[in-house]
Simulated assay, not measured.
Amino acid sequence: MNTTPAVPRAAATVILVRDRPDPSGERAPLQVFLQRRVPTMAFAAGMTVFPGGAVDPGDAVRPARVDGPGPEEWGRRFSCPPGEAAGFVGAAVRETFEECGVLLAGPADRFDDAARRAARAALTDRTRTLAEVLDGAGLALRADLLHPWARWVTPEQEPRRYDAAFFVAALPAGQAADARTTEAVEARWWYPADILGEHAAGAARLMPPTWLALTDLTGFDDVAAVLAATADRVAVPIRPMLVRRGERMVAVVGDREIAIP
């Protein structure tokens, strides 16, 4: 029997946040966008997740088409080589656009609705790369809208493994996140505490990285506070251990134990 662990595939995830004012003033406005994946997916089937996916070769964008930090800085912030970091950034922008229609590129007035729909469809069916979409529309990838949050490596016991960079980004003004993706059965904005409550009640299923990110986000009142917390953040790879506790499995991360749904 071959026990050699699968090689992790590079991936990127975006924690998309916004402020939704509460007229009653009873709760903080911070919300996060989440999708419940279709039950037939090969990975994380039925889970409630942030937008994201594996890095594609076409995610590399030439420096002239990037506004904001370059590969060297992203490499420092994600504790990896610059080339790997550039893939994380490109995948983060592409996956967010494909899965919920939010494009972290500009200037925004270069893209009318028809052009956005066509570009999104082309990326989804892989007839165009992110670099080709940006070049064709004269857009720059807005790396300055992305902020490092965490980096997770799937445990060695799992048959599908990912080395995933987690970014946080504020919903750009004038844009809206939608549920028009074949990879999710529903998608919407949540208050972090509410979706954690759904998970605790068994009405939603969260993987350990999602659960931990949402738990940490409950400590922030608004988008400004979240982004401020990323100012000097360096994401060191988190490699959870899977441990059996009676009839259930848990992911051990430092002194925390997170149940596996």
Rank of each mutant, 00 (worst) to 15 (best):
P261S: 10
V49A: 00
T215I: 07
A42N: 11
G219T: 08
V185C: 09
T48D: 03
D178Q: 06
R142Y: 14
P71D: 03
P21W: 04
E95P: 02
P51W: 00
A45S: 05
A119D: 07
A204W: 09
A225C: 02
A91N: 03
G68Q: 03
P23H: 08
V234F: 00
L206S: 05
P57K: 12
G68I: 06
V49P: 00
L104Y: 07
G219D: 14
G138R: 13
R233Q: 00
E26Q: 11
A200I: 07
A193Y: 09
A228C: 09
R151G: 14
V226T: 05
P21D: 09
L34F: 02
R36Y: 03
L34V: 00
D22T: 10
D19N: 07
W189T: 01
A176N: 08
P240G: 06
V243M: 04
L227C: 00
Q175A: 09
V17F: 05
A60L: 14
I238L: 11
A200E: 15
G53D: 03
G90E: 09
L134G: 12
R120L: 02
G138I: 14
T13D: 10
T182Q: 06
C80P: 02
A11K: 05
D59I: 10
R9M: 12
A131Q: 15
A201K: 09
T181Y: 00
A11C: 08
R62G: 08
P208K: 08
D19G: 00
D67S: 09
A204K: 05
V93I: 14
D22H: 14
L103T: 10
T215M: 04
R62W: 12
P209N: 15
